[in-house]
């Protein structure tokens, strides 16, 4: 279980994450939704330990996040972050060297499906290829928590399908996927829950099925409602 307890992150002149508390359970695929600058990336980076919170805690299975949790939490940043000198093969070797749960076999399977050549230099990859590589290397881990930050950014429809397919194939009862994206419709058929973050604050956690049954709205409708463009206003 992943627990965010009154977590706050302030940068100079800006509060990026403001007092967010929530509990996330294994066996779910969460969409992390919110406009640009709402705090999604900062929250994810705090979960991975890349950013230290100003106050509050992130707990993973009852313990504060730290070195042990990094062994079980796989993070895919939205920006390219591989060393310039690396080939696609080097990236896999690097993950194999540092993460015990990394499967080289699975990595090569994903690369094959995504038509990525292991000899290619990462610095020469197009944005679509880079997105696929990041997903492939992240999803080749057998992690307990997958954090995918904007995995669909800047890639075409076909590549999106491949990326999402690779991501959801890893979903299992003993792990959780948290996927942030602006493309709400793309996520709607994949996720079972959605976390809304608005102006650095938690605006709600919704079960997609319950939304449909109880409120009769889709995830996209709820998104519009929460972030200011109410469905009713369109009538």
């Amino acid at each position: 279980m992943l627990e965010s307890i009154e977590i706050t992150k302030k940068f100079v002149g800006k509060t990026a994450v403001d007092n967010i508390s929530m509990k996330l359970e294994s066996g779910h695929i969460y969409a992390l939704l919110g406009p640009n600058g709402s705090g999604k990336t900062t929250w994810m980076k705090m979960v991975t330990g890349l950013i230290k919170p100003t106050s509050g805690y992130i707990m993973y299975n009852g313990a504060p996040i730290g070195i042990p949790s990094r062994r079980e939490i796989a993070y895919m940043a939205t920006e390219p972050y591989f060393y310039d000198w690396m080939t696609i093969a080097d990236v896999g070797k690097y993950y194999q060297d540092f993460f015990e749960d990394f499967s080289m076999e699975k990595y090569h399977t994903l690369l094959g499906r995504m038509e990525l050549d292991t000899k290619m230099k990462t610095k020469n990859l197009s944005s679509g290829m880079m997105a696929k590589l990041k997903v492939a290397v992240t999803m080749a881990r057998n992690a307990k928590v997958f954090l995918l930050d904007e995995p669909l950014n800047g890639i075409d429809l076909i590549a999106r399908d491949e990326v999402m397919q690779a991501a959801i194939e890893n979903a299992a009862p003993d792990n959780m996927l948290i996927i942030s994206s602006h493309l709400v419709e793309e996520l709607e058929s994949v996720v079972d829950s959605a976390i809304f973050i608005k102006d650095a604050k938690l605006a709600g956690i919704y079960n997609i099925e319950e939304l449909r049954q109880n409120e009769g709205v889709s995830l996209a409708d709820k998104y519009r409602e929460v972030f200011g463009h109410a469905v009713g206003g369109e009538n």
């Binding site: 991975t48 330990g49 890349l50 070195i67 042990p68 990094r70 062994r71 993070y75 940043a77 920006e79 390219p80 972050y81 591989f82 060393y83 690097y94 540092f98 993460f99």
Partner: peptide, 13 residues
């Protein structure tokens, strides 16, 4: 730089 993730997301203190 963003390459910092390569070091600091690994399970090393």
């Amino acid at each position: 730089t963003k390459q910092s993730y390569m070091l600091f997301m690994t399970p090393n203190n």
